[in-house]
Write a protein that binds this DNA or RNA. Structure first.
Lengths: 238, 238
DNA sequence: CGTCGCTTTGATAGCCTTCAAGAAATGTGG
DNA sequence: CCACATTTCTTGAAGGCTATCAAAGCGACG
């Protein structure tokens, strides 16, 4: 299936992201069946591939812990970061389009993911899990769209503020402090994903650090003035 | 369900986009059942809403004919175009995230769409249509991601060329001439979707028209030098 | 024929990219 | 544990591209 080792997974009942995943609406009894269907990856180290572009896509994944990035290679050799994925979020759905992954997924640090094998999906329908999966996919879709709207803004400050705002929402949904963001990605990855140069990203973050809007501590970014960030980002009507 | 009138639909067997939709992998017998599950909208006129932001999202849609745009309203009053949708493409999937549409869908001209009622999905699973739906969703996902990668480019020429390149691919998939693109949207809508000003879009298109790369004829855009466009757009490795 | 909306074209200013170099952090070998 | 090499991040200055403001051309429609 892919490069990573899978094992019988640790159990949805104990999963920290259970409330966000397929298990969300299932009964305790159904959880046991889900445990037989879903496979969790062994803990992956920084830089390890969950799958590579071109691999057969027999499954897609839900992040259980850690953060993954997805990348595509450009014709001139460097890589383009298409997304960052946090616990409870879907990775690799696009592979089901033609049975091959079009991008590669890489762990940004210690991380685990659960494989949802496509061939097993009918068993999940039978459990009544279709609504959960559809909701998970729809949330993914909404998130992707919000990112795209944000990306189409041309000013760097708006893009970065919007990205951080979305990250705050995703972090809050996980039950963590939304003002303390886990950002294990490099400036280069971040810039690539935002479609900016790393110098520009660095400049904007430095400016915000000097004005007390944020505080950066290597791999975590603390939001000191959330409202300042929110007012910089694009506002959508309720 | 929404603002539009639905009627028992015209039959998947006769649908021009049958090969792209849920019906793709179904047997003739199953098609008849699908006809009972899916509802086609009455022909909609330019400007009509398929659904509005805030409406209950009991279904999502597949475009049968024409083109739709989806929009969100910004806090300062104007609208932002989040997508254009051609026959065989999914609209409104994001509504399933919380049961309410977060954006509005509007016909750009005479158009029809088929409603896939979420409550009926188990009946489609039973037909063996789950694989088709997943593939449809995955193609949608892949398309969205390609658009986002394209959008993150900062140069206007690259963004516009990439958008046209994607539109060529989508048009070709429908069985139409990929060098003759249906573009019923206004320059304002196009610019909004691309995250550029309409002046900038106009300038780039004028430049390409003068250099013989394209030819614009009101609502259709003819590509005269596809390679010139492809080389301007972002290249991804195979 | 005139009005109105949409599109095209023009000139200036602001922002981001590019090129370049220095600072900080990370990793490695002694 | 420290010194050194390498990578990553930050800062600076100049140029290019897009946004903005402004106005003219074009088409649709009454």
């Amino acid at each position: 299936m892919s490069l990573i080792s899978l094992r019988h997974h640790e159990g949805c009942a104990l999963c920290p992201t259970r409330g966000l995943c397929i298990a969300r609406d299932l009964s305790e009894a159904s959880l046991g069946v889900l445990d037989e269907i879903v496979a969790t990856s062994l803990p992956m180290a920084k830089g390890e591939y969950l799958y590579r572009a071109g691999d057969a896509a027999d499954a897609w994944y839900v992040v259980r812990s850690g953060v993954y990035k997805t990348i595509v290679d450009t014709a001139d050799g460097d890589e383009y970061v298409t997304g960052f994925y946090y616990p409870g979020e879907i990775v690799g759905l696009e592979g089901a389009a033609d049975g091959r992954f079009g991008e590669s997924a890489i762990a940004l640090g210690s991380a685990t993911a659960c494989a949802v094998v496509i061939a097993n999906l009918p068993r999940i329908w039978a459990l009544g899990g279709d609504r959960s999966i559809l909701r998970l996919i729809a949330e993914h879709e909404r998130n992707e769209k919000a990112l795209r709207v944000n990306m189409s803004q041309s000013r760097a400050e708006v893009r970065i503020a919007g990205f951080l705002k979305l990250l705050m929402e995703r972090t809050g949904r996980l039950g963590f402090d939304p003002t303390c963001l886990a950002m294990p990605m490099s400036r280069t990855d971040l810039a690539s994903h935002l479609g900016l140069t790393l110098e520009c990203v660095s400049r904007v973050l430095s400016r915000w650090r000097r004005s007390g809007v944020i505080d950066t501590d290597r791999s975590t970014l603390r939001i000191l003035k959330p409202d300042a960030l929110r007012s910089t980002a694009l506002h959508l009507a309720a």
